[in-house]
Simulated assay, not measured.
Amino acid sequence: MKSIGTGRAAIDWHDRRADVYLSRPDKRNAMTVPLMNDLIAAFERVDANEDIRAVTLLGEGPVFSAGMDLTMMRDRVEPDSEIDRDVFPRLLETIEETRQPVVAGIKRAAPAGAFELTLPCDFRVIGREAKYGLLETTLGTFPHGGGTQRLPRLIGLSKAKELVLMGEFVDPEAAADMGLVHEVVDTDAVDERTKAFADRLCENAPLGLRNAKQALNAALEMPLEQGLDYERQLGYELDDTRDYREGFEARLENREPTFRGE
Rank of each mutant, 00 (worst) to 15 (best):
S158R: 14
A112S: 15
D26R: 05
F43G: 03
F248Y: 12
P223D: 15
M166Q: 14
D86N: 14
G113N: 11
A54Y: 08
V63L: 06
D26W: 09
E129H: 09
R193T: 11
R251Q: 13
I40Q: 00
R150L: 15
V20N: 02
T258L: 10
A215M: 13
N37W: 02
E50H: 10
E237K: 15
L201V: 07
G61E: 09
R99H: 06
A218H: 01
M166T: 09
Q214T: 14
R90C: 12
V181A: 04
F123D: 06
T137E: 02
E203N: 11
E60L: 13
L216D: 07
T258R: 11
Y244A: 13
D177F: 03
K27A: 10
E253H: 07
D229R: 15
G61K: 00
R90M: 12
R108C: 02
T194S: 13
G247S: 06
M1S: 15
L209T: 04
R108L: 12
D80Q: 12
F169I: 08
R85D: 09
D122C: 04
P143I: 13
H14A: 05
A48R: 12
D243E: 07
G105I: 11
K131H: 12
L180I: 03
A175I: 04
A176K: 15
E246L: 03
A215C: 08
R255A: 05
T137A: 02
Y21E: 03
V125G: 06
M1V: 07
K213Y: 04
L154A: 05
L228H: 08
T6W: 01
D75L: 14
E221W: 02
K2Y: 02
Y230L: 04
G145H: 11
G140P: 02
L209S: 05
P206L: 10
R24D: 03
D38W: 02
A196D: 14
K161V: 08
D239T: 11
F197A: 01
D186I: 00
L163I: 13
R108E: 07
A66M: 12
D12P: 03
S81Q: 08
Y21F: 15
Y236S: 05
T141P: 00
R260V: 10
K131F: 15
N211A: 14
R124W: 09
C121Y: 05
E192L: 07
M68H: 02
R90Y: 07
D199W: 03
P120D: 12
L58Y: 03
D15E: 15
E162K: 12
